[in-house]
Design a protein around this nucleic acid. Structure first.
Lengths: 200, 200
DNA sequence: AGTCGCCATATTTGGTCTGA
DNA sequence: TCAGACCAAATATGGCGACT
């Protein structure tokens, strides 16, 4: 009885784990409250639990006012942003480099697509879209890619029909368009593999 | 001696406060670590201290990896955002309706793109991407669209060259591909107007 | 299943002491 | 002064049982 020594690993029994979670959640919130009042500092905790069927749940947090939490995490983000800028490579420059590479790929096609001003590599408006809007947009873009792909297929077919069995695109003799992989787009692999954007 | 009862208010003595802060910060981090491992949940703490001269200091946080912290606070933000949007229209049903519409549009093309199983309209993995990852992905998709567009241009040109001045695509006599607009993709207008995805 | 209390013990931590 | 180490009171919290 009393209390056995706790091994620091996932509590196996679902039930005990749940109870422990509740108790410790309370404790954690209390501690956070205490340090913030005793020491006059800003602090917050965020805890994510999972329902039994493994789907995400509402976050639990302190302070109870979401606005306060947001203000603190915003400060955190700002800070980490500054940090990163000092370090080696921040996101924007990462993008710049990546898109430069892409632009190069495009210019290899030898077309008008190389006009930098006409096709900006990044639009700040993207920063203002909500996460949901972004998801939606990704999905939409994926769908649009499908449509375009259909059209390319059509064109290839009719062209092949006219040209005979020769390769369709002189710029890409083996019919190997610059693939997603060659563009080095992070996370793109996942998207490709789920055939949202089937390879051309 | 021993320990006097602690009044839950700002500790007046600078020195004691500092000591207490250090001790309790350690405790808080430890507790956070414990709840996350014992219960298998994601959790983070962020604490902001102030230097003696009232200027902000580096945040103290757990997990020690800033990326993990970011991922958790991103999820937090997403959630609070969803909350707000939940009011009138359920998101998923909204998506369903939209993608259904798109599928209809695609099927109008009368091509192989209508294979539902081959081209899923929504992949749940999108739900797990952070906001930054989503932005990146949108940008990447936009760029990929450009590349593809270039290729379409190329094909159109070569085809037109072979066929003469006649319309390029028999399916679309006036050379009017289904535009973004006709797909009724929300926010797509903004993207188009910023010529990230110039009209075909 | 979920919640509450209880209680024995584990842990935390304010204050103090000690040694550079 | 500035860390640590130490100590004992104060807390936190596993496990259990009763109740719902």
């Amino acid at each position: 009885m009393g209390r056995s020594r706790l091994p620091l690993e996932l509590i196996p029994k679902e039930k005990s784990r749940k109870i422990t979670f509740q108790k410790r959640t309370m404790g954690l919130k209390k501690k956070t409250y205490e340090i913030s009042t005793l020491c006059g500092v800003d602090a917050c905790v965020i805890i994510y639990n999972w329902t039994s069927d493994d789907r995400p749940m509402e976050p639990i947090f302190w302070p109870s006012n979401p606005e306060e939490v947001k203000s603190i995490i915003n400060r955190y983000k700002e800070h980490s942003k500054e940090e990163r800028g000092l370090k080696t490579l921040d996101l924007s420059s990462f993008f710049e480099e990546r898109t430069k590479k892409i632009q190069k790929e495009i210019s290899k096609l030898g077309h008008q697509g190389t006009d930098q001003t006409k096709y900006p590599t990044w639009d700040d408006r993207l920063n203002d879209l909500s996460t949901d809007q972004l998801r939606e947009l990704v999905n939409a873009l994926g769908n649009k890619l499908e449509v375009i792909k259909s059209r390319v297929e059509l064109l290839k077919m009719s062209q092949a029909l006219l040209e005979g069995p020769a390769s369709v695109n002189p710029s890409y003799p083996n019919n190997a368009m610059p693939s997603t992989q060659s563009l080095h787009v992070p996370y793109m692999g996942a998207i490709d593999s789920m055939s949202l954007v089937p390879t051309l």
